[in-house]
């Protein structure tokens, strides 16, 4: 990982020096452990601030929307897929981007780490290949990375970037034997009442802070439907029906576009696993349209397309 950091710094410095880009977007080490932050640098000397490890869970695509300058940006699998979606949806031009591809090994779930050390204060984390060491004032524990991956990363089949101009390292081997939708299948098998109970409990804690929406690169509308007043689609309170309406519609807006980057869950202050909604739609897109978001620049997501000669049986 340190190797990646050095390489990223080197590339950013070069791009800025050669004036190939006006800005470089990456991560810097967070002020707290496990909380790396997005950073935009515009001068070669700032390149040293760039950093990469397994806690870069926020989606950088958010910072690309509607920019008009030339941008260098780092991208792992899911981030690069969101860039593809951004390009298709006219939020950025491909020519504006210099994409520094990062073959990704998955992000570590900071909540799981905190749980593992019983919520004791963590002062530092040291990463050593397949393991990492969590250090506190009076403790030091070593864990296996594999077991602490974010749940989306654990089942990720697109770790390598889809589009890039340069790579920071060798492509990693893609996972193939993962069953990505076990959790969704479990919900699908429930009877309607149980399902309703499941989703009601799932969003029971939601405080409607919209952090999930704000962290999501797909949510770039000038005015979100939750803020519309004529007509008002969703009430402002935390009435469970309103909250459910919000989550349903947010997920629906992501159908065929979500790359399961996990930013929404990562930023949720209440720890709500709202990927249950988007994953179901991802699964449907895969099964009904053989579609995974952000893999090609040539085709728009299935819900954006009108075809009179739809070849699927479910439309007649």
């Amino acid at each position: 990982m340190v190797k990646y950091t050095e390489k990223i710094q080197e590339i950013a410095k070069r791009l800025l020096q050669e004036e190939k880009v006006d800005v470089f977007i990456g991560y810097r080490k967070g002020t707290m452990p496990m909380m790396n932050q997005p950073v935009l640098i515009t001068a070669p000397e700032e390149a040293a601030r760039l950093y990469w490890d397994n806690f870069c869970g926020l989606n950088l695509c958010n910072y690309l929307t509607k920019r008009t300058d030339r941008i260098g940006v780092i991208a792992n699998g899911c981030n690069s897929r969101n860039m593809v979606t951004h390009i298709i949806e006219n939020q950025i031009q491909r020519e504006q981007l210099y994409i520094v591809g990062i073959p990704c090994e998955g992000m570590i779930d900071h909540r799981a780490v905190m749980r593992a050390v019983h919520y004791k204060e963590i002062l530092d984390i040291e990463q050593n290949g397949k393991t990492f060491v969590v250090k506190g004032a009076d403790f030091e524990e070593t864990f296996e990375k594999e077991k602490f991956l974010q749940s989306n990363c654990a089942v990720c089949t697109h770790r390598n970037p889809v589009i890039y101009d340069e790579l920071v390292g060798e492509l990693v081997e893609e996972q193939t034997d993962v069953s990505a939708y076990e959790d969704v299948e479990k919900v699908e098998a429930m009877d309607p009442e149980k399902k309703q109970g499941f989703f009601t409990r799932l969003i029971g804690r939601c405080i409607r802070c919209y952090a999930c929406r704000n962290a999501c690169p797909l949510c770039y509308c000038p005015t979100c439907f939750v803020d519309e007043s004529k007509p008002q689609w969703v009430g402002k309170s935390i009435d469970p029906t309103d909250t459910l309406t919000f989550h349903f519609l947010r997920a629906y807006h992501c159908a065929g576009r979500c790359t399961d980057c996990g930013a929404c869950e990562r930023v949720c202050p209440m720890g709500i696993p709202m990927r249950q909604f988007t994953k179901k739609l991802n699964k449907d897109c895969l099964e009904l349209f053989s579609w995974e978001a952000g893999l090609t620049l040539d085709q728009r997501p299935p819900l954006d397309v009108y075809r009179p000669d739809d070849y699927n049986d479910f439309i007649k």
Partner: peptide, 20 residues
């Protein structure tokens, strides 16, 4: 003022009515 310019309408219309 509400348009994000994403182009869904341009793509999806069977009659080519929307454009940028």
């Amino acid at each position: 003022l509400y348009c994000s310019g994403c182009g869904v309408c341009v793509e999806i219309c069977p009659y080519s009515a929307p454009s940028f």
